[in-house]
């Protein structure tokens, strides 16, 4: 039944958010620390476990797939409730602070992504081959 999948998903989110809140209060931060991240890990492990034991029939999967498919519209709904007026009104200081922070971090992504790999040589080898 589809509800099994949705229930599994809901349980993972609730447990994950709980862990995030507990972690937040443990380190004295007024925020949920990694709640959704924990939820995702829980879901990954739970589905792996169930799949191996053949306990994940198609209807159950559908109960999760629907929510994963509805994700982009949810993001659009989220965008539609941002305080865009405040962002624009913040003036040049706010716009520059936000924009520069974004640009600088974005530019560094390739360098950080290389950490832990064999480095740019792998690219060169691929081309050589």
């Amino acid at each position: 039944m589809a509800i099994y999948g949705t229930a599994l998903l809901a349980a993972c989110v609730l447990i994950g958010l709980f862990i995030g809140d507990v972690l937040g209060s443990a380190i004295g931060v007024k925020a949920n620390v990694g709640g959704v991240g924990f939820s995702m890990l829980l879901l990954i492990f739970a589905s792996e476990y169930l799949r191996k034991r053949d306990l994940l029939p198609t209807p159950t999967k559908e109960g999760v797939h629907f929510w994963s498919a509805i994700y982009i519209p949810v993001v659009v709904a989220m965008a539609a409730q941002q305080n865009v007026v405040a962002a624009v009104k913040g003036g040049p200081a706010a716009i520059l602070a936000g924009a520069l922070a974004t640009a600088v971090c974005f530019a560094l992504i390739p360098a950080i992504a290389r950490i832990g790999t064999k480095g740019p040589t792998t690219d060169a080898q691929t081309i050589a081959e």
Binding site: L9, C12, V13, L43, I44, K61, V64, Y71, V74, M78
Partner: peptide, 10 residues
């Protein structure tokens, strides 16, 4: 939002 984001990890 959290529900749907988590679902993408499936």
């Amino acid at each position: 939002r959290d529900f749907a984001i988590t679902a993408t990890a499936f």
